[in-house]
Amino acid sequence: MSEPDNPQPTRGVSPNAARSVSRELWVFFTLTFAMSWGLGGLYLLLHAQLDPLLGPMGPHNAVFYVAAWAPTLSALLAALTLGGTAGCKALLARLVRPFPPVWLAVAALIVPAIALVLTLSPRLGFPNWPVTPRMILVALPAVLFGTAQIVTNTGPLGEELGWRGYALPRLLAKSNAFLAAIVLGAVWTIWHVPAFFITGIMGQSLAGFGWWSLDTFALSITITWLFLRANGNVIVAGMIPHFVINGMGAVGAWLSRPPEAAALAVVAVCLLLADRHRFFRSPGAAPL
């Protein structure tokens, strides 16, 4: 299998090539859910026996980190199993793909910019809005660059090489970018469901799941847009926006509150409309 991590468009190629892309996706998703839901579920069933040894499920628990890193670990396993050493090299190469530097700034600033606009909420009908500019401009950089957030918050490193490095290019080979973003957003949302039942993981209750889901779908569209613009570089289109939005959650500046989720959804719709020729063109028209 040549170019294992750069699947070619399924339209106009042999049925075997199309089936190969589908198989790679199924292997990746199956491994991801088996590793996280399976391992995590088994731990929760046996927690009475395992808690004294490893502690409760959550940060500082080794099993938690394996489950939380399931997308990245599954991508590496799938790439190695289906593509060999070349597959792993191609997957890791997505971390260093060249891109126009402006997209690095866009990736880092797009969600904080939305949050800053929302600090005007008292003027927009939300008189008790809890987020202040200081939380975004001072507390957020302090957490991102002055703590071990990049390691302790598993999302950027533990997920993005899988979601955006392995799955998204293959979804783009099978469908247009809008549909790929929606499918990946759905998988991303479902994968997180068990975390809502583990105290202290998501930072919010199951009651907020609907707004969090909207936030996740909107973020999936936004990151897909960055992926198309930044030549498929996973650090720009994945790790950085994930790192930033999780850091904002750590300081209370973004918790998928209704105005936040709605605002990000509005931005996502604007991106779809403004860049519709990229989002809705034929599958694999410009393979990444």
Rank of each mutant, 00 (worst) to 15 (best):
residue 252 G to Y: 06
residue 15 P to W: 10
residue 42 L to F: 08
residue 65 Y to T: 01
residue 193 V to L: 15
residue 167 A to C: 10
residue 94 R to W: 10
residue 175 S to F: 14
residue 281 R to G: 14
residue 103 W to E: 02
residue 38 G to D: 01
residue 216 T to A: 10
residue 3 E to C: 08
residue 106 V to L: 13
residue 279 F to L: 07
residue 192 H to P: 10
residue 44 L to P: 03
residue 73 L to P: 09
residue 116 L to F: 01
residue 178 F to M: 11
residue 46 L to N: 05
residue 7 P to S: 04
residue 144 L to A: 14
residue 34 A to N: 07
residue 44 L to E: 14
residue 287 P to S: 05
residue 27 V to E: 07
residue 45 L to P: 03
residue 195 A to N: 14
residue 27 V to K: 05
residue 160 E to W: 06
residue 76 L to R: 11
residue 94 R to V: 08
residue 129 W to Q: 06
residue 82 L to D: 04
residue 146 G to T: 09
residue 16 N to D: 14
residue 276 R to L: 00
residue 150 I to L: 15
residue 78 A to M: 09
residue 45 L to E: 09
residue 281 R to C: 13
residue 160 E to L: 06
residue 161 L to D: 06
residue 16 N to K: 13
residue 35 M to V: 11
residue 251 V to C: 09
residue 242 H to R: 10
residue 72 T to M: 02
residue 76 L to E: 03
residue 269 V to Y: 02
residue 231 N to I: 02
residue 244 V to K: 08
residue 226 L to E: 00
residue 95 L to Q: 05
residue 279 F to C: 12
residue 16 N to G: 13
residue 233 N to C: 08
residue 9 P to E: 00
residue 101 P to M: 07
residue 102 V to W: 07
residue 276 R to Y: 11
residue 265 A to V: 06
residue 132 T to S: 11
residue 109 L to F: 14
residue 112 P to M: 00
residue 246 N to P: 11
residue 212 W to T: 11
residue 99 F to E: 00
residue 132 T to C: 03
residue 212 W to Y: 13
residue 55 G to D: 14
residue 135 M to Y: 00
residue 120 L to H: 01
residue 133 P to F: 11
residue 158 G to W: 09
residue 172 L to C: 11
residue 238 G to W: 01
residue 210 G to M: 03
residue 164 R to I: 01
residue 83 G to L: 05
residue 287 P to D: 02
residue 184 L to G: 07
residue 3 E to D: 15
residue 77 L to N: 01
residue 26 W to R: 05
residue 228 L to Y: 07
residue 163 W to L: 10
residue 111 V to Q: 07
residue 262 A to K: 08
residue 237 A to F: 07
residue 220 S to A: 09
residue 26 W to P: 01
residue 52 P to Y: 00
residue 32 T to Y: 00
residue 282 S to M: 12
residue 163 W to G: 08
residue 91 L to A: 10
residue 250 A to W: 11
residue 100 P to M: 04
residue 277 H to V: 12
residue 241 P to I: 04
residue 232 G to D: 03
residue 151 V to Q: 13
residue 230 A to T: 12
residue 3 E to Q: 13
residue 6 N to A: 14
residue 101 P to F: 10
residue 156 P to T: 01
residue 278 R to K: 13
residue 33 F to H: 04
residue 252 G to Q: 06
residue 166 Y to S: 01
residue 92 L to Y: 14
residue 8 Q to A: 15
residue 194 P to C: 04
residue 263 A to M: 02
residue 222 T to M: 06
residue 34 A to P: 03
residue 2 S to T: 15
residue 209 F to R: 09
residue 104 L to I: 10
residue 16 N to R: 15
residue 176 N to A: 09
residue 251 V to Y: 08
residue 115 A to F: 01
residue 202 M to L: 12
residue 97 R to S: 06
residue 7 P to F: 05
residue 256 S to F: 11
residue 255 L to C: 08
residue 25 L to P: 12
residue 141 P to F: 08
residue 239 M to D: 07
residue 96 V to Q: 11
residue 171 L to I: 02
residue 125 G to F: 02
residue 190 I to A: 08
residue 44 L to T: 09
residue 127 P to Q: 00
residue 139 A to Y: 15
residue 143 V to H: 04
residue 174 K to D: 02
